[in-house]
């Protein structure tokens, strides 16, 4: 079965989407990523969509679902490399991908990922005030 590769780098998982995904492939990626997060105890997921020439509501929804599921599994997600034409179209379509952290490129994405993992850690460590 066709699959999108997931690379593990330390406590991060990296995914580069390079094909025009059909719906089933998108769902497989969602399942593979969530099981990989648990298996490799990843803290962050970086998804590079710079090769995607189109993001429709299905793919947008999938990205949002991945970010939510990852958060439940104590991992942060950053989507990087969205093409300007894709951003323009997504907003006109009515999807602003709220709840998904984005960055312009992989380098900025890694910085964002590290800082959001640090923030999440601080929130989790905060002791309750009585």
């Amino acid at each position: 079965m066709e699959r999108i590769p997931i690379l593990k780098m330390g406590e991060y998982l990296l995914v580069t989407i390079q094909v025009d995904m059909h719906d089933r492939l998108a769902l497989t990626l969602q399942e593979d990523l969530t099981s990989q997060i648990v298996k490799s105890r990843a803290r962050g997921v970086l998804i590079d969509i710079s090769a995607l020439e189109m993001v429709d509501s299905f793919i947008g929804r999938m990205l949002g679902a991945i970010a939510s599921m990852a958060r439940l599994l104590d991992a942060q997600t950053v989507v990087v490399g969205m093409q300007p034409s894709v951003a323009i179209t997504l907003v006109e379509l009515g999807m602003s991908l709220q709840g998904i952290r984005t960055a312009l490129d992989v380098e900025k994405g890694m910085v964002a990922l590290m800082s959001s993992i640090r923030e999440a850690g601080e929130d989790g460590d905060a002791s309750p005030e009585f």
Binding site: E53, M54, D56, S85, I88, T89
Partner: peptide, 12 residues
Amino acid sequence: VDQTKIVTASSE
């Protein structure tokens, strides 16, 4: 941009 818009609409 126009390509992306019509392609995205077609996908929906």
